[in-house]
């Protein structure tokens, strides 16, 4: 039986790496990948802690719904990214600044 702390350490490191990817990269698709990594880190915690619960199904259901939300988010985000690329010819978030002026 792996202790919960090990899962917590792995998911904390994964969350930090996903956070670093999301704020470092100047590419919208890579930022989306960073957000996916962060969501996965949260899922690991839900599944690990559901083992201590009375009904293990509840924590697992939460991670299932997170996966559904992540799929929906990725679909909409990629549609917006493709549209932005047609509009601006770039997916660098620094170059997409029309609303500024």
């Amino acid at each position: 039986m792996i202790p919960n702390t090990y899962f917590l350490i792995i998911s904390a490191l994964l969350f930090a790496i996903g956070f670093a990817v999301a704020i470092t990269k100047k590419n919208l698709i890579l930022m989306l990948m960073g957000v996916e990594l962060m969501l996965n880190a949260v899922n690991i915690n839900f599944v690990a802690f559901s083992r201590s619960a009375e009904n293990a199904g509840h924590g697992q259901l939460f991670s299932l719904f997170i996966m559904v939300i992540a799929a929906a988010e990725a679909a909409v985000a990629l549609a917006i990214i493709l549209k932005l690329r047609d509009e601006y010819g770039s997916i660098d978030p620094d170059k997409i600044d029309e609303l500024k002026n």
Partner: peptide, 20 residues
């Protein structure tokens, strides 16, 4: 432009991530 990967604030963001 789409395939290349440009990094900004590499060190700072790694530091923040390590802190988190």
């Amino acid at each position: 432009d789409a395939l290349g990967v440009k990094n900004v604030n590499n060190l700072a963001s790694l530091l923040v991530a390590a802190l988190v």
